[in-house]
Design a protein around this nucleic acid. Structure first.
Lengths: 328, 328
DNA sequence: TCTTCTTGCGCAAACGTTTTCTCAAAATTA
DNA sequence: TAATTTTGAGAAAACGTTTGCGCAAGAAGA
C-alpha cells in the first residue's frame, strides 16, 4: 500500500505538505500542489481509512449488524431501519450468517475483534452465554429475542398479541373451525403465536386445533393438503407466517375451496411484496420492522454513549385485513 | 469516550498492561486482570475501532456497497454475494440510498471521505462524471450498468438475451399475440429487454406490441386491465419484471382469462419468494445475482490490489419455466 | 533602507491502540 | 546459598494520518 511517505519521497516534499496538498487545506504554490497530485495519482495512492479517522477530529462510529439472511425481507427491513438510525454519524457493517449457527457465533466474536463500537444481533439462535460474554466488551442490542443478560437491550414484538388479534378477527368473521398452522417448538416466536391463538379461541368458546408445521411454503401446502384429503374441514386458518399461509391457500384452491368464501386465511409478518401480490391478497399481522430496526440502532447508540437505562422495548403488531379474510 | 489511559489512571497500572488485560494476551496475575476488567466495565470502556485497526498488524479492508433499496430482493441477493466475496478478509459497509438520487450522490462522495478501500455501486442512476471523479480516489465496481470510465469495472447481465429467451419460449409455446409490458426509457435495462423482445418477435414473423409501463405491481395490473377492457386480446405476455407480471396475471384472472391456458406469462428477475408462491407459479428469467455480487466483490478486491485487467463481466441469464407458461 | 506582511513549506505533536523488549522481583531448582 | 527460571508489569516504538505552529525568504510599504 502506497502512503503519504512514498509520495513525499518521490516528490521531495514533506509528509505534511503532501497531506495538505491532497486535502486541499494548506498554503502552497499551484506548482507544488499539482506536482504532488499527479505523483499521488500515478502511484495509485489511497488514504488509509483507519489512520485518517484516527488523526482527524471527527470520529465516525461503526455499528455491526448480524442477520441470519439478508434476502429475507424481514431482515432487509430491519437493516434499513438500523441504517436509518445510523444517519450520517455511523457506518453500518452488515454481516450475514447465512443461517449458520456456527458462522453466527464466529461473527459475534469477530465483531468484538474488529472493534466495532456496538452490534445489533437479529433473531439470534446463539445461547445467552456468548451474548453475555461479548456484551462485556461491546454493547449489544438483540432483536426479536428476549435476553436476560445485563447490558443487553432487547427489541421484541408482542407475538402473543398479534396472534390474538388475527384469531379474534377470524372469529368475528364468523369462522367456526379455525386451525392454527405453526407452533413448532424450535422458535420462541412460534410458541408465543400459538399461545395467542389459544387465548382467542378459548375466549370465543371454539375448539383449538393446532397443526405443527415448519415455516416454508411447502410446509403449509402439505399440511393443509393432508388435512383436506382426510376430510378435515376448516373455515379459518391462522398461519405462523405468510409463506405458510400461501401454501395453505394453494392447497385450498386445488381442492376446490374458495378463499375467503369457504375459508378465511390470515398470515403473519405482512411481507408486502408477498401479501399484496397474490390473488386473493393475503391478510396478515404486521410488525413495524423498519421502525423496530431504527429503534434498535438508536438504543445501541445510547448504549455506546452510556446513557441507556432501557432493558427491553416491546412493539405492538397490527392486523392488516386484505381479501383473504374479507367479511363474508 | 473512555480510553485505555483512563483505565490505567483509575487502576494505577500502565496503558500497556491494561491493553493486555483486555485482549487477554499478556502475562499478569488474575487479580490484576480482574481488577482492570471490572474497572473497564464500570467505566463503560469501548475500544476505538480506528486506533485498534491502525495499531494491529492485520489490516482489514473495508468495502462499501451502495444499493438503492435493500428491501428489494435483487439487491439483497447482490449484497449477499458481495458479502460472500468479503469472507473473513473484509468488512462490508452497507449504504442504502433509499432510492434517492441525491442521497446516492452523497453516499458515493462520503464513501471517499470515510476512506473505505473500494466501493460497489449497485444499479446506479448517478451520472458518469461523479463515478469518474470518485474512481480517481477509490476503486469502483459498478453493478448492472455500463460505465465508460477508466479504472471502473462493470458487472452486467445480458438483458437482451434474457428477453430474447423469454419471448422465444412464448413463441414456441404457440402464442400468436405476445405483448411486452415494459420498455420505459428511464432505465437502461428496460431498453435492452425491449430490444431482446423485438428481436425474438421479428424472428418469428409475429407482430411486436410494446406497452410502456413502470416497474410496480399496479403498473402491470392497470395496463393489462385497460388493454382487456378495450378488447385488446393477447395470448402471451413478457413482462419487464416479476411484479409487473403478477399485476398482469391478476388482471387476466379478473377478466376471466385462464393462465396459462388463455394467456401465458413470463416475468423477469426470478424472485423466488414471489414466483414459486403464486398460483399459478410464475415463469421468469433468472439472473445469477448472488454470483454476480460475489464477482463484483472479487473484482473490487483485485482492483484494490492493483491486479485487475478486466473492464467488464457479462453474465448470461437463463429461463425458469413454471406453470404460468406451461406448454398447452 | 528598514520595517512589516505574505508566501511556501517543514517540524513535531497528537490520535488510541498493539506489541516487542526489558527488567526487577519472586519462585524454583541445584 | 547460589544459580536459574518464571512471573508481573512497564517503557517505548510503531501504525499513517492531520494540523498548529514556526520560520526563512521574498514582496510590499514607509
Amino acid at each position: 500500500m502506497v502512503k503519504l511517505r512514498d509520495i513525499a519521497q518521490q516528490t521531495g516534499y514533506s509528509i505534511s505538505t503532501v497531506s495538505k496538498a491532497l486535502s486541499g487545506k494548506g498554503r502552497m504554490s499551484d506548482e507544488t500542489r499539482n506536482n504532488i497530485l499527479s505523483v499521488a495519482k500515478s502511484l495509485g495512492y489511497t488514504p488509509d481509512f483507519y489512520a485518517k479517522s484516527m488523526a482527524s477530529k471527527t470520529k465516525t462510529f461503526v455499528l455491526g449488524l448480524i442477520v441470519p439472511d439478508i434476502t429475507n425481507p424481514f431482515f432487509a427491513y430491519l437493516t434499513r431501519g438500523v441504517e436509518r438510525a445510523c444517519g450520517e454519524a455511523c457506518l453500518l457493517v452488515l454481516m450475514d450468517s447465512f443461517r449458520s449457527l456456527h458462522r453466527e457465533e464466529q461473527l459475534i466474536r469477530a465483531a468484538r475483534f474488529y472493534g466495532v463500537n456496538g452490534i445489533v444481533v437479529g433473531n439470534s439462535r446463539v445461547n445467552d452465554e456468548l451474548i453475555d460474554e461479548i456484551s462485556k466488551y461491546v454493547p449489544v442490542v438483540i432483536f426479536d429475542k428476549e435476553c436476560k443478560c445485563d447490558n443487553v437491550v432487547s427489541i421484541v414484538v408482542d407475538n402473543y398479541y398479534g396472534a390474538y388479534l388475527a384469531t379474534k378477527h377470524l372469529v368475528e368473521n364468523g369462522c367456526k373451525h379455525i386451525i392454527h398452522f405453526g407452533g413448532t417448538q424450535e422458535l420462541y416466536v412460534s410458541l408465543q403465536r400459538a399461545q395467542g391463538y389459544e387465548a382467542a379461541i378459548k375466549e370465543s368458546g371454539l375448539k383449538s386445533h393446532i397443526v405443527r408445521v415448519g415455516y416454508a411454503f411447502d410446509d403449509g401446502y402439505k399440511a393443509a393438503k393432508k388435512l383436506l384429503n382426510e376430510r378435515n374441514q376448516f373455515d379459518g386458518a391462522f398461519c405462523m407466517n405468510d409463506l405458510v399461509a400461501l401454501g395453505v391457500m394453494k392447497a385450498l384452491k386445488e381442492e376446490g375451496r374458495k378463499v375467503p368464501e369457504d375459508a378465511a386465511i390470515v398470515g403473519f409478518d405482512d411481507d408486502k411484496q408477498l401479501c399484496e401480490v397474490t390473488v386473493p391478497s393475503l391478510s396478515s399481522v404486521r410488525q413495524p420492522v423498519e421502525m423496530m430496526g431504527e429503534t434498535a440502532g438508536k438504543m445501541l447508540l445510547e448504549l455506546i454513549n452510556g446513557q441507556s437505562n432501557t432493558k427491553k422495548v416491546i412493539f405492538s403488531p397490527s392486523l392488516v385485513v386484505r381479501d383473504s379474510s374479507a367479511r363474508r
